[in-house]
């Protein structure tokens, strides 16, 4: 069994969101970068658990990015995985990124391709579906559970007001969310081992993006809080009803 986990680099959740170049670029000054939480906590950890239960599993990681993504992919390798690929492209949109990964996947013969539900910077929630669409693979989105049995993936996915269990043959693309695994912290052995695991840089194939960001914008600041005394709850209800008109 061969698994590929797609890893994205995102700003830390506490990073200040600001823009430069006339609001056309994200201001990276002072920003700490992390592995996208959905990729790390759910997709990667679940893949590691599968490898732990079936040691002959081959687990590869891949990212699309330039050299500054290397520390992130090494961090991911410290958690687990045999080797990693970095496709050397500063991706402009999800389609362009998915197209690169789809080529790697077509060549690599993977059975299971895992992505996070979305990245916490662009929140596209589209990468897994794009890869599946480009390579004509089945796609299960927003999975909360994943098991392997009889050369099939048994996946629980979220549906409106509930969950359903699906069965699918390999190869398949699955996007992972909360419930699938619990976050882990890399140990010293993992960190040491990650230094010598292969990290192959792959040159990108030509594919124009289909979309481009023309400008960013910050939401307007709140006017400020109106405080109501704790023994005046009826006044709060009156304000919500008559002033804010939301009750």
């Amino acid at each position: 069994m061969k698994i590929l986990v797609c890893i994205s680099k995102t700003p830390d959740t506490t990073a200040k969101i600001a823009f430069t170049d006339n609001n056309t670029k994200f201001d990276t000054a002072g920003v700490q970068w992390i592995i996208n939480p959905y990729d790390e906590w759910y997709a990667l950890v679940r893949a590691i658990e599968i490898k732990e239960s079936k040691p002959d599993t081959v687990l590869h990681l891949a990212t699309v990015g330039v050299a500054d993504a290397d520390p992130i992919i090494r961090k991911a390798l410290a958690l687990g995985g045999d080797e990693a690929f970095r496709i050397n492209l500063d991706g402009a949109d999800s389609f362009q990124v998915a197209f690169q990964l789809a080529q790697l996947i077509a060549k690599g013969g993977y059975d299971l391709i895992l992505t996070g539900k979305e990245t916490i910077d662009f929140n596209g929630s589209s990468l897994g579906g794009l890869i599946a669409g480009i390579n004509d693979l089945p796609y299960i989105s927003l999975a909360t559970k994943l098991d392997i049995a009889d050369a099939k993936a048994i996946v629980t996915r979220e549906i409106e007001g509930g969950e359903e269990v699906c069965e699918v043959n390999f190869p398949v693309v699955v996007s992972a969310q909360k419930g699938m695994a619990e976050a882990r912290i890399p140990n010293m052995r993992g960190i040491m081992a990650a230094r010598t695991k292969p990290l192959t840089v792959v040159e990108p194939v030509t594919q124009e993006p289909l979309t481009s960001v023309t400008a960013f914008e910050l939401p307007p600041a709140k006017a400020g809080v109106k405080l109501i005394a704790p023994d005046q709850v009826e006044e709060l209800v009156r304000l919500l009803n008559q002033e804010a008109k939301v009750l």
């Binding site: 389609f95 929630s125 990468l127 579906g129 794009l130 599946a132 669409g133 480009i134 927003l142 409106e160």
Partner: peptide
């Protein structure tokens, strides 16, 4: 709609038609 169903289907259609997708 950027709902569970939309999140599953829209990217697949985007890939099939090479159509640019804006979610959210």
């Amino acid at each position: 709609s950027h709902s569970l169903a939309g999140k599953a289907i829209a990217p697949l259609l985007s890939a099939k038609c090479k159509a640019g997708l804006v979610t959210g």
